[in-house]
């Protein structure tokens, strides 16, 4: 049960926040991570068009050997992505908690510009506290 990384992707598919919380994840340059996040945004958009039931709501999780990813999109179009080990319990609650921290520390911060990279020490420290309690 490890959280490898947390990403925040904005409405346009740009990566506004990414942090790695384990050393097992292969190191990548920031540019490579940006491209990956953009691609994931695209896949999410494609899968949401394929959804036969409601016509909205795309990719929610993906799995590989011993690892997986969970995607959660807020009503405003912000996507939270968590890369984690398998099997991981309580991911839904974790996503909710991350979103709570996001809405507190990012959205209520007057020095944060919407859709721009998140530069808040409060967000980082609270997120770190949350992830450490899980890892």
């Amino acid at each position: 049960m490890t959280i490898h990384a947390v990403w925040v992707i904005n409405k346009a598919g740009g990566l506004v926040f990414s942090r790695t919380y384990s050393d097992t994840l292969p190191t990548q340059t920031l540019n490579a991570t940006l491209i990956l996040a953009g691609t994931l945004h695209g896949i999410h958009a494609i899968t949401s068009r394929l959804n036969p039931i409601t016509g909205k709501g795309g990719l929610e999780s993906f799995e590989g050997e011993n690892w997986g990813g969970k995607i959660w999109m807020s009503l405003t179009g912000i996507k939270l992505v968590v890369l984690h080990s398998i099997a991981h319990q309580g991911l839904d609650e974790l996503m909710k908690k991350i979103y709570e921290i996001y809405s507190d520390a990012v959205m209520k911060n007057p020095f944060q510009t919407l859709e721009m990279p998140i530069n808040s020490s409060l967000f980082e420290s609270r997120l770190l506290g949350l992830i450490q309690s899980v890892n």
Partner: peptide, 9 residues
């Protein structure tokens, strides 16, 4: 409590 001051300020 929710405000974090950017470094340049």
């Amino acid at each position: 409590q929710h405000i974090s001051i950017p470094r340049d300020m």
